[in-house]
Design a protein around this nucleic acid. Structure first.
Lengths: 91, 91
DNA sequence: AACATAATTCGATCATTGTCGAACTATACA
DNA sequence: TGTATAGTTCGACAATGATCGAATTATGTT
């Protein structure tokens, strides 16, 4: 996480679809599977978006059966990028 | 400014050079001319970066003789995108 | 008028990225 | 064993974006 730069985080969130994913994960208050997210793209694209978010240190993922559950890395994000969660939440 | 979306702002700041520009403008506490910024790119590229920042509602620019002085739209940004300036400042 | 300074505009180029279908892997269930 | 479900991986393609040199505009200075 320390090796993630702010521009990388910004880049990850500059895509409207990915921002939507992050906001839904934040609101859900529980880990969500990829297909539980309301985003009308192909499975390949969805998988790509989750990979980008993961690489940017924004989400955490662990496989649970055939599903992979993702959640926001809230604590680490607030520590390394103060203001980010406030910005994403819009308040 | 109301018509600027968060992804657009993120996109503008996802470039390391542009983030540097914004951070220097914030630190300067006074409007800076394009060439006062420490960024080793051509004049054309520099002009492009300032245009992107302007379109994203991040900076304000007014011509002063042959120079064009830019500054961060601090108040509006904090109002529309709470957390953004904290994030950029790193604290 | 002539020259210098500051920035913009115009094409062009090259790299990055968002998107998809199709094939593949892995787990769960009948 | 076969089938369904959930994601990943692999090209490929189209769109976007960062970069530059050169030409242009506009202001200031001598």
């Amino acid at each position: 996480m320390e090796d993630v730069s702010l521009p990388t985080v910004m880049q990850a969130l500059s895509d409207p679809g990915r921002l939507t994913i992050v906001q839904e994960l934040l609101q859900a208050e529980r880990p969500l599977a990829c297909n539980e997210v309301t985003l009308d793209v192909s499975k390949a694209t969805l998988s790509h978006h989750f990979e980008v978010l993961r690489a940017a240190g924004l989400i955490d993922t662990n496989m649970e059966g055939t599903k992979c559950l993702s959640s926001i890395r809230t604590a680490e994000l607030e520590a390394h990028f103060p203001g980010l969660l406030t910005l994403i939440n819009g308040r």
